[in-house]
Design a protein around this nucleic acid. Structure first.
Lengths: 241, 241
DNA sequence: CGTGTTCTTGAACCACTTCAAGGCCCGTGG
DNA sequence: CCACGGGCCTTGAAGTGGTTCAAGAACACG
């Protein structure tokens, strides 16, 4: 189905990298004082993952945790018969392995080119145990993820196809605007239609038909790398009620 | 739809209540040393909620957090047009308000007679800030809930009606067995068919038909207060694959 | 023992899926 | 440079699992 070559490329990590990190205000590192940041930097290794590469797989020992700095990651659970549910897309600033558990609860692979800071889970957990304010920050991230999961449960349990697609587009736009600092009517969709389908509990044909219908109704324009919103407020209206 | 009389009854709380609490090994209090438990007990008030009573509502200021000691609570999100998604059922030992956020992210009301220890959120959060091991425990509870939410997303996104009902029954059985210490083929269902439907993303008629079908196929017997499993392993098989 | 609520069952319907085919895009190799 | 091949996406037509609508049965509670 997807390329699973697990070829992560280590990057050189020059000193003061963390201090210059554009994402620091967004990710868990914001909880740290400069000297703590330097300590944590000592534990970090920059890694890059090619489009389609597996970062980790469900039920495997959780050797590492990741701080995502660029790219999009799909997180998913597979059923034995091949059905797949994507439980979320991780964006820059997101942390993979918040549970600090000894096994991964889901699979993660790179949707496009991904760059991440990698830490040994054990070393990271030991570090966290000495920094209650970092644990508090991690807990905030977890509860935010829990709240996203609740929203997704509403979408999966009670929303129509068009509402699901609209919620997906608006949700992605909101998350990117939080990262970039501005809201664009252009939404880049690095993931495939199949990924969107497996996220929204629909089939690839329904995603395609629904996007076509939104385009026919002059709500969006489908462009090569994503969509452009023509009527943000009517799109947002679909995500409510 | 449901009774929403918010009449919580305060219980007298004799000394050493926490020390004698049967649920302590299960709930967040297990993280505390005896003297810390005594400190926390000082912040607690026992409350009971009648069947149908609202414990708190979505978007309201989170004045309190709760440690559930008896009964079942339904947690749900409402859409403006009345559609409801139950995001989970809380059982004894569960903690409501793990996020420690200033507003509730969902509604909670008593499915049957509920008893809970109530804390001022502010006082509880202040207490947690002085006890990193308690925060760690709370974080474990949160990530466990996140994992339950992920499982539910798979159910809502990718499973058939019969698989959803089987997963619900087996999941409830597993959770109760963890609380009671033994596994019974008898599963008490204090919640209504409508509640089950709103949890599984189906309609009440589909729940009723699916249970009838399982009974006709000699998989279960429908009894007044729940169901009795006749073939646990074939039921469990439905929750996999 | 009536009255309202919850649950069950049947029949018709429909939103989404499944099956099938064709189009588009892009990399590869002649 | 164009032909070929393989993903990925789109679209149509038929099928179906679950919903909706409707009515009766079982149950709970005064």
């Amino acid at each position: 189905m997807q390329i699973t070559a697990n070829l992560a490329h280590s990057l050189t990590l020059p000193g003061k990298q963390c201090a210059n990190c554009a994402l620091r205000r967004l990710n868990i590192c914001a909880a740290l004082y400069p000297e703590e940041l330097a300590q944590l930097e000592f534990l970090a290794h920059g890694f890059s993952f090619k489009r389609g590469a597996t970062m980790f797989a469900q039920d495997n020992p959780a050797e590492f945790v990741y701080n995502l700095t660029a790219g999009v990651v799909r997180l998913y659970i597979l059923l034995p018969d091949g059905r797949r549910q994507i439980i979320g897309f991780a964006l820059p600033g997101d942390f993979l392995g918040l549970a600090l558990a000894d096994h991964y609860g889901f699979c993660a692979d790179a949707v496009d080119s991904v760059i991440a800071c990698r830490y040994s889970r054990q070393a990271f957990a030991d570090f966290v145990d000495t920094k209650p304010h970092l644990l508090r920050r991690i807990h905030e991230f977890s509860t935010h993820e829990l709240s996203l999961a609740h929203d997704q449960m509403v979408i999966l349990g009670r929303r129509s196809a068009i509402e699901r697609v609209a919620s997906f587009l608006i949700g992605l736009r909101d998350r990117w605007s939080h990262i970039d600092g501005y809201s664009s009517v252009h939404i880049t969709l690095p993931m495939s239609r199949q990924d969107i389908a497996d996220f929204l509990g629909l089939t690839i044909e329904t995603i395609s038909r629904t996007l076509s219908r939104l385009a026919r109704d002059k709500q969006i324009v489908i462009v090569p790398d994503g969509v452009r919103l023509l009527n943000v407020s009517s799109m947002e209206a679909l995500t409510k009620v």
